[in-house]
Amino acid sequence: MKQVSLYRAPTTEADADAIAAWLSERIDAGVAVRDRFLSRHADGDLPEELAGVRVLDPYDSETGNTMLGVVRYEERAIEHPERAGGVIYDGQALQRSLHRRIPADERSLSHLHVPLLDRVVGTWGDHDGRWHKRVNVLGQPALVSVPGLYEAPAKPESYYREQQRHALLSGDAPPREVLEEQVEGEFLVADDPRTTDALKGYVLQAYHYLSTGEAFCDDGGCRLHNAHRQPAVVGAQLRGTEFCSRHAKRYRPPA
C-alpha cells in the first residue's frame, strides 16, 4: 500500500491529525488528512442513499425509509452534522455507497480511505437475528465510527446492574450521566478525552486488513484486537505494550 487518506470528523472529539501522525510512524505508506468525507463527496443522491441504509428495527434486517421528511433530515445532517444523531446505518451498505464516491483514480487497494464518521454504523448478525453496532467496518473505504467507540462495545456488567436497579426503584431508565458517575469500571463515554488515542488502533486495523488480509488479532493486549466489551477496549487500546510480539515486529516504531 502506498497511501492512506484519513478524513476528519470535526463535530467529534477525534483528532485526525494526531491519529495520522501516530500512524505514519508505524506504517510504510504516506498518510494524509482530508476534510470530512460526507462534506467532500456529497452529491444530490447521497441524502436519499443515507435514508435508504437506515436501520429501522434492531431485530429486522430490512433497512431504509426514503420518505421525504427522512431525506430532508439527511440533507440537513450532511450540511450541519452537529444536528445528527440517534440513527444507526447499515455499515456495509453505507460502505458501498461511499466507495462509489471515491474518485476513480483513487479506488485501488494501494490507496486506503478511512473516513472518521460522526454516525453510528452496524452490521446484521445472522447468528442471532439482530443488528450490532460497530466501531469499524473494514474494507475500502474503511469506516471508523467515533460514536460507535462509545456505544458498540458492551459496558461493564456493573453498568447494566445499576441500570436495572434504578429502573426498579424509579420506574424509568436513569440518565446516562448518572450511570457514568455511579458505576465503577473502565469504559469510554461520549466526548471522552481518550477518544483519539483509542481510535488509533482501529484505524491501524483498517490498514492491516487491506495490506495483509488479516482482520484482527486474538491477543487482548494488541491494538489489532477486536474488543467486544469496554474494559477490553481500554486494555487493548490504552494500556500495555500496544502490540503483541508478532505485530510489534511489524508496527512498533524504531526506538
Rank of each mutant, 00 (worst) to 15 (best):
V71R: 15
P193D: 06
P58D: 13
H127Y: 08
I78F: 06
V234P: 02
E242S: 10
E157N: 11
L224I: 08
I78K: 04
I19S: 02
V87W: 15
S24N: 11
T12N: 03
V120N: 08
D15R: 15
E181D: 12
A255R: 15
V71I: 15
E25N: 15
G52I: 01
C244D: 02
V4D: 00
Q237K: 13
H208T: 07
K249L: 14
P81T: 03
R40M: 11
F37V: 06
A29R: 10
G69D: 09
G235E: 09
A248R: 15
L143V: 08
L116N: 00
Y159V: 00
P58N: 07
M1V: 05
V33N: 11
L138W: 01
E49F: 01
A190I: 04
A142Y: 00
S108W: 00
H132Q: 11
E184K: 11
V146K: 05
G125K: 12
N226S: 07
V71A: 14
Y160R: 04
L38T: 14
G220Q: 13
H228R: 15
A255P: 04
R101W: 02
D192K: 03
D219H: 13
R72L: 13
D172Y: 12
R130C: 06
S97R: 06
Y59G: 03
R40E: 15
R34S: 08
G240W: 01
R176V: 14
R100Y: 07
S5R: 06
V31G: 04
R96C: 04
R26I: 03
G240E: 01
Y251L: 10
I88E: 03
D105L: 01
L56K: 10
T63S: 00
S108N: 13
R246Q: 13
L38S: 10
V4E: 02
A154S: 13
D28C: 06
R40D: 14
A21F: 05
E180R: 15
E74F: 12
A154P: 05
G221F: 03
Y159T: 00
F37W: 14
S24L: 01
D172E: 14
E157S: 14
E180K: 06
I102D: 02
A14S: 06
T241E: 13
L68N: 13
G129R: 12
S108Q: 10
S158L: 07
I19N: 02
T195M: 07
S108H: 08
H113Q: 11
V189W: 00
L94Y: 12
V144S: 12
L23T: 02
G122H: 02
P10R: 14
A248K: 09
T195H: 10
E75L: 00
V137M: 11
K200M: 12
E79S: 12
P174R: 09
R100E: 15
H80F: 11
G129T: 10
A21C: 07
E82T: 09
P10K: 09
R26D: 08
R34Y: 05
L238D: 02
G129H: 12
R96D: 12
A248Y: 05
R134A: 01
G139Q: 06
A77G: 08
A20Q: 09
F187A: 07
D35C: 07
L238C: 10
H225R: 06
G171W: 10
A20Y: 02
H247K: 08
D197L: 07
E74G: 01
P47V: 04
A215F: 03
R229I: 01
